[in-house]
Write a protein that binds this DNA or RNA. Structure first.
Length: 952
RNA sequence: GCGGCCGUGGCGGAAUUGGCAGACGCCUUGGACUUAAAAUCCAAUGUUCCUUGGAGCGUGCGGGUUCGAGUCCCGCCGGCCGCACCA
């Protein structure tokens, strides 16, 4: 029986596409091109999640649509396969991670093929492929070979780095060291979370209450020698170049906030006796503001130089280099104790304690350069060593944090800004120190600047400081350089060699692995565990240190080296995969420059919002370096970016029961810190959350309540899918029941692409019903053989049928262009509803419809296309065109309102002039009745839309 | 705390951007077909009031602009997601 049977149709067409290489990328790009890219997945052991196909279907629809529009399409897929889960699994089972990774990639590939995506599978890549790792390492060497010329705002070859005379005078080693200090990839002693027991560096997220997440071992903050990438050099360009991109404002803002550019001034405060400050200042007025601060002063960064007159104390971070010199004898023990306890805290712990600020007085004073008054210098961990200069001038009157601190330690507050006229804050409250006013306003107690608005004072004081050699305008970023090394096994080895002496000790000289020796492959190990004890020099010992000597100690030109044993983080591979897709098999270069020019940039990039910041920032950074060095022609990689929303589990009703099984209304329930439901009244009595069936619940006013007891309120919401909640939907099950076309269509029909939305099983059967109806509109499902429905044939197309067709073509075309797939599907449903009622369904119209449906439901469409008499795939059939003339209605219904309320409807021909439309409205009997005895004050006539008459 | 997004029927969501609120789908109810069921098809389906026909009220709440507001402005309330001492 020729019922619609996706499990028979779909594998058949998938085989057809694969055997005929239907979606092979064209060798040469035509007039128009589309590079449609998905954020490639990490191939986890769990297999595909229903969230994956959402974005993938969206790009696939656009790719298929574009091919039919005659556009050259590149639509690839691959795998971001380095990562921790594979390594954990390897440790547990002692099998090489590449084995489980390969298995997972095969599962993912099978699942993706079952969804009928039109990827060019010949371009499949995995970041773990040796041929891919080679070029990841090569790009690292480009970073290693590049320095950033801040004048030209451009990365340049290290060989072009100007060497200062004093450095070149000091010899070759000094020059080499100077170069190493300026490379975009450099080694640095960064403060990191170091866990001695685990022998590894941990991410902030892996540390809780100063203990390691796994094993509860103590973690300390220590400077360790790590590889860093100088992304901060590109901060300005990463921010500015966002502007012309077709990204949502939300994502642009997230990136901007992450970069965190702020402008202000650096200011030097003289340290020492008040009497000497005058002469120091006059010397400064002559010498100007020095590039580096010296020990006579403390340099701060501030965004509010206008509040300088209100600076009543200073704060330096506990790690500041001046701590020792500033601490006086009788403060020494208190300072030592404070700094030691601060060092033991992770960043997270410091943040947790932000409610109550802590600090300690150094015993020293600085001189406020504008007032000449001595002000105390404190140490407090609310000042971060990693931002600005690690020191601040504190203005408690106009900074919330300084205000809290000053209140706690009883430090004077001087108000220097009054709220502007119309502010909620009163000047009197600011003067009395009752409130902290952090906004812009008007200067007071600021000498010559009194009465001027904040913005002007900022400029004027900065200029004055500059003139006096006490300060200069400055820019700062929250963005930090990128800590790029990991003590893990399953990642790309660094292509770097450390020179060693006869005793095997590092000399400090490093060199790149010669390009012709790339890739540096991972060595074979018998044990993937991180080392549990640290090496004698206190540095972590990554697993790669246990490699054979052959791997670990190469000799080049008679010089002995030790390989770098850290690996790159998972981000590395995803930083440039979009380039490799363009030329995936090239062994000579990472990408052919001609092909790069033809295909870049990516025209549509779709993926989850979880990568909105880091991945996109990192990839853009690498791309800009490659651009500066002439390896790519485009400045930005991703022209249009769309973040799909999250697919949540099915909606759940949740009720609460007390210890005696009594129902408790949700209105009386709150959550405690452990996210357990408790009674709101005491915040302690634990309750049990139970799922309530939908038929036991009804809506009353704003809330859902129990049908049997309306005084009991029930919570209603959808939760994130998770294994522990048991609400995970497996795409394989949906495909088995209703087919890939139904899954694709349902995920597109759920709602706007970028919105989070709950799953609904009956919604799936809804779209399956539509596919069934579309099938029956064309196929005779009661016949023995597969044949056309008796109503389908070579019929004259009626005017109404033609109008429906062209309206549908127009709507679907525009909706696909807007990525508004839910409404495109709704229009096709209307089409099917209409033509199912037609006894004569012209074959030509059915064909056009099948083409419209094909990007969304490709298997069903191919099957119907074949049945309509076309032996070849429809993938390259021309996309249907619409004709405005065919859409014109003979008569349209116009509402007539009186005082904005609908009172009648009139039928008029479209395009009627204002006057005629008004005449027709006034001619209406009912309108005449209602207007009787009233005076018409005003008539609003919108042609083809409505008439509104104002009368009383 | 700061920032972003969002509140429309029982549910997911539409609404040519200021012009008929609730397209399309789900759920529910009724009917046709059937010995029966499934499947399919047809119809009803925001809410209240009255007698058909209609009238009133309705887009989280309160105000405003307008002939006209889901859409614009001001002030609240609620939800979700980021960031979190960045001077």
């Amino acid at each position: 029986m020729p019922r619609y049977n996706p499990s028979e149709i779909e594998p058949r067409w998938q085989r057809y596409w694969e055997e005929n290489k239907t979606f092979r990328t064209p060798d040469t790009v035509g007039d128009k091109k589309l590079y449609a890219l998905d954020m490639f997945p990490y191939p986890s052991g769990e297999g595909l999640h229903v969230g994956h196909p959402e974005g993938y279907t969206a790009t696939d629809i656009v790719a298929r649509y574009s091919r039919m529009k005659g556009i050259s399409v590149l639509h690839p897929m691959g795998f971001d396969a380095f990562g921790l889960p594979a390594e954990e699994y390897a440790i547990k089972t002692n099998t090489p991670p590449e084995v489980s990774t390969e298995k997972n990639i095969q599962t993912f590939t099978r699942q993706l093929k079952q969804l009928g995506f039109s990827y060019d599978w010949d371009r499949k890549i995995s970041t773990t492929d040796v041929g891919y790792v080679k070029w990841t390492q090569w790009i690292f060497l480009v970073l290693f070979d590049t320095w950033f010329d801040s004048e030209q705002q451009k990365g340049r070859p290290i060989s072009e780095l100007p060497i200062p005379d004093d450095v070149s005078a000091a010899g070759q080693d000094a020059i080499r060291e100077y170069q190493d200090d300026h490379r975009l990839a450099y080694q640095s002693d960064a403060l990191v979370n170091w866990c001695p027991a685990l022998g590894t560096v941990l991410a902030n997220e892996e540390v809780k209450d100063g203990l390691s997440d796994r094993g509860d071992h103590p973690v300390e903050r220590r400077p360790l020698r790590q590889w860093m990438l100088r992304i901060t050099a590109y901060a300005d360009r990463l921010e500015k170049d966002l502007d012309p991109l077709d990204w949502s404002d939300g994502i642009k803002k997230l990136q901007c906030d992450w970069i965190g550019r702020s402008t202000g001034a650096e200011v030097d405060f003289f340290i020492g006796d008040q009497s000497e400050s005058e002469s120091w200042m006059s010397r400064r007025a002559e010498s100007g503001f020095p590039r580096k601060q010296n020990s006579q002063c403390l340099r701060v960064y501030t965004t509010r130089p206008d509040t300088l007159f209100g600076a009543t104390y200073m704060v330096i971070a506990p790690e500041h280099s001046a701590v020792e010199t500033l601490t006086t004898e009788n403060q020494k023990s208190a300072v030592d104790q404070y700094c030691r306890s601060a060092a033991a805290k992770s960043d997270r712990d410091r943040q947790d304690e932000k409610q109550s600020k802590t600090g300690v007085f150094t015993g020293s004073y600085a001189i406020n350069p504008v007032s000449g008054e001595p002000i105390p210098i404190w140490i407090a961990d609310y000042v971060l060593i990693s931002y600005g200069t690690g020191a601040i001038m504190a203005v408690p009157g106009h900074d919330k944090r300084d205000y809290d601190f000053a209140k706690k330690y009883d430090i004077p507050i001087i108000p220097v800004v009054h709220p502007p006229a119309g502010s909620d804050v009163s000047a009197a409250d600011v003067d009395s120190g009752a409130v902290c006013f952090a906004d812009h306003g008007v200067a007071v107690n600021s000498g010559p600047y009194d009465g001027q608005p904040t913005a002007d004072v900022k400029k004027a004081i900065t200029a004055k400081l500059q003139q006096d050699g006490l300060g200069c305008a400055a820019v700062n970023y929250k963005l930090r350089d990128w800590l790029f090394s990991r003590q893990r096994f399953w990642g790309e080895p660094f292509p770097i060699l450390h020179e060693i002496d006869e005793n095997g000790n590092k000399t400090g000289k490093i060199r790149a692995v010669p390009v012709e020796s790339l890739p540096v492959e991972l060595p074979e190990l018998s044990d993937y565990r991180p080392r549990s004890e640290s090496s004698p020099d206190g540095q972590p010992k990554p697993p790669l240190e246990r490699a054979d000597d052959d791997w670990l100690f190469p000799v080049i030109d008679g010089v002995k080296y030790r390989r770098e044993s850290n690996t790159m983080p998972q981000w590395a591979g995803s930083c440039w995969y979009y380039l490799r897709f363009i030329d995936p098999h090239n062994d000579e270069v990472f990408i052919d420059p001609d092909l790069e020019k033809q295909w870049m940039p990516v025209d549509l990039y779709i993926g989850g919002a979880e990568h909105a910041v880091l991945h996109l920032l990192y990839a853009r950074f690498w791309h800009k370096v490659l651009f500066d060095r002439g390896h790519v022609s485009s400045n930005e990689p991703f022209q249009k970016l769309v973040n799909q929303g999250m697919i949540l589990g099915e909606n759940e009703f949740k009720g609460y029961r007390g210890s005696d099984e009594q129902w408790i209304s949700a209105a009386e329930v709150t959550e405690n810190e452990a996210h357990k439901p408790v009674l709101k009244s005491d915040g302690a009595t634990e309750l049990r959350a139970v799922t309530v069936e939908p038929d036991q619940v009804e809506k009353q006013g704003e809330f859902f309540v129990l049908s049997v007891d309306p005084s009991i309120r029930i919570d209603s919401r959808a939760y994130k899918m998770s294994k522990s909640r048991g609400n995970v939907i497996n795409p394989d099950d949906i495909i088995a029941n209703d087919g890939a076309d139904a899954l694709r269509l349902y995920e597109m029909f759920m709602g706007p692409l970028e919105q989070s939305k709950p799953w609904s099983m009956s919604g799936v059967s809804g779209v399956r019903g539509f596919l069934d109806r579309a099938w029956r509109m064309i196929v005779d499902d009661r016949a023995e053989e597969l044949q056309l429905h008796e109503s389908v044939g070579v019929h004259e197309v009626t005017e109404e049928q033609n109008r429906t067709l062209h309206k549908t073509i127009k709507a679907v075309t525009q909706d696909i262009e807007k990525l508004s797939f839910n409404t495109a599907i709704a229009r096709m449903m209307e089409f099917v509803n209409f033509f199912t009622r037609q006894d004569k369904r012209p074959k030509s119209v059915m064909e056009q419809f099948v083409l419209l449906l094909s990007p969304l439901a490709p298997h069903l469409s191919e099957e119907l296309w074949a049945l309509l008499g076309h032996p070849q795939t429809l993938a390259y059939e021309p996309w249907p065109e619409f004709d405005e003339a065919a859409m014109v209605e003979s008569s349209i219904e116009i509402p007539v309102q009186i005082m904005g309320k609908n009172r009648a409807k009139i039928n008029v021909p479209p395009g009627l002039s204002k006057d005629d439309l008004l005449k027709a409205a006034l001619a209406n009997e009912r309108i005449q009745e209602l207007l009787e005895g009233k005076t018409i004050r005003k008539e609003i006539v919108v042609p083809d839309r409505l008439v509104n008459i104002v009368a009383n």
